[in-house]
Design a protein around this nucleic acid. Structure first.
Lengths: 132, 132
DNA sequence: CAATAAATGCAACAATGTTGCAATAATATT
DNA sequence: AATATTATTGCAACATTGTTGCATTTATTG
């Protein structure tokens, strides 16, 4: 976390550090609107560009669920190297938060005739806190 | 198909019939831009409202994949009744089309602590024509 | 600490989506 | 079949979201 920017070889600016700090404060994926609320003052354009470069560098990933604005979450280390996003995007109907959850066994799907290279699974239901 | 609008209890207007005709012409999901190209002349606002009501009535469903504009596809009959979208959204890297594909066995996923109510699976790879 | 390279912020614009309201068209009623 | 009722359409105007060029400022390199 500390030197993620350095590791990814992009300049360490105060703004980027602040945005990164917001991401690491949450354990769920967050939309732009939350980042904007957390930032005391900010420039819209710089934020767009920051999000864009974070995605390009594999620092965060975008999660788009039907009917929701895009959400963003920090990538796990494996993200950049091997299989990207071998986790499930879970949207809780209780708290409306979106989580990245590791599945003990990620399913394999066979579609006759189709050659599947990558799977992305999105689930809705109740998260740990909300189902307790 | 013929009287889908009547079945769903919304007015049968020429515009809606035309849009519905476009959907049934394609066997893959299509974005707004394609619908716009197919319509000789149209009103932007009416199109938005048409898409909206089609979704509400379960005539079409929206497919949002990361990095893509929204795509829309006709719902199967089961859609409106039992489980919604028990199929896979497949994006072909060859032709860039998005297909709704029925899987012979739809996977079950278990996330300890989480209560999963619905699954949405998105795959990327090569479709039948492009892998042949 | 200077030279270089990159990021920021402004202005201006482009694309996308929404709302109220009057005109028009579709459906229901007699 | 003609009218009453209800729903849809299209316009104007606006709101939101995202993009680009360019000068200024800031971070990194040596």
């Amino acid at each position: 976390m500390t030197n993620l920017l350095k590791i990814k070889k992009i300049s360490e600016t105060p703004f980027r550090k602040e945005v990164l700090g917001i991401f690491s404060k949450y354990n769920n994926a967050i939309p732009l609107s939350i980042i904007e609320k957390e930032l005391k003052e900010y420039n819209r354009i710089t934020l767009y560009r920051t999000i864009k470069i974070f995605i390009e560098k594999g620092i965060i990933h975008e999660i788009t669920l039907s009917g929701n604005q895009s959400n963003y979450a920090l990538c796990k280390e494996e993200c950049s190297t091997v299989a990207h996003h071998q986790h499930i995007h879970f949207k809780c109907k209780g708290c409306n938060k979106i989580f990245c959850v590791e599945a003990d066994k990620f399913p394999t799907i066979i579609l006759p005739g189709y050659k599947i290279e990558q799977l992305e699974i999105q689930a809705t239901g109740l998260c740990k806190s909300c189902s307790a």
